[in-house]
Amino acid sequence: MLARRIIPCLDVRNGRVVKGKQFSSIQDVDSPTKLGKYYSDNGADELVFYDITASNEERDISLKFVSEVAKELRIPFSVGGGVRSIDDFTKLLRNGADKVSINSAAILNPNLIKEASDRFGSQCVVLSIDAKLNKDGNYKVCINGGRKETEWEAIDWAKKGVELGAGEIVLNSIDEDGMKRGFDIRLLQKITNAINVPVIASGGAGKVEHFYDAIEYANVDGVLAASVFHFGEIKISELKDYLNEKNIPVRL
C-alpha cells in the first residue's frame, strides 16, 4: 500500500524561502538549503521548490540554489516556477531535480507537456494547476501567479494535462492559499475522480485535521503545505503520528 505523502513546499524568491497569503503579502522565512535539509532529515516524503522570482535574468541564480538544496536531500525533489521550455527541464534535472512542474507555460503551450514527457518520462512531469472559484461557481485555471484567469475549467485542464503525459497533478487553491481553513475538498474530489495519476493537494492547511480530510474525503495521494511547517505550527512527525492513528498509511 502506497503511503500518503507529506510534502513541504519552499517558495523561493531571491534565494530565500518566503511565504505569502493568497499568492501575495510575502514574508521572509529562511534559507532553502537549511530548511530543505531539515525536512529531508525529519520525515518529509518529498520536497517541492517553487522559484517565485523566475524572471529570465535571475533564473541562473535560482539554478544554483536548486543545486545546493538537491545536495542536502535524501528524498525526492520537485522543482517549478517559470519553467517554459525543454531547455528549462534539462537544466533543472541536471541540477538535481527529480521532477519538474510546469504551470503557466503549459497553458500557453500545452504541447510542452507532451514533449517533456516523451523526452524525460511522465514521472518527472508535474502539472501544477492554480484554480480559483469564480462567481459562477466554476473552478477556473489561473496563470501568472494567480493574476490572470484563463478559459480553462480546472477539471478539463487536469484531464487534458494527463492526456498529454503529465504524471502528477498539484492542485493549488488560490482562494485557500495561506488561509489555514483547510484544503478545498470539493475541488480536489472533482479532480481525483476525473483522472488516474497522483494528485497532490495544496493551499489551505492550518491544522492536522485538514490533512486527514483531504486524504480521507478527497482521496489525494499527497498533501503539500508551507507556512504551517516553516513556522513550526505543525511538526511533520506529529502530523504523521496523527494520520497513522487514524489508519492513514504514512511512512513513519
Binding site: 500500500m1 502506497l2 503511503a3 516524503d45 514521472q123 504524471g167 502528477e168 495519476v197 495521494d221
Partner: peptide
C-alpha cells in the same frame, strides 16, 4: 495494469 494509478509513484513498503 491500469487497474491502479500509473505511474506507481511514492513510498511503498
Amino acid at each position: 495494469p491500469d487497474i491502479v494509478k500509473v505511474p506507481h509513484m511514492g513510498w511503498n513498503k
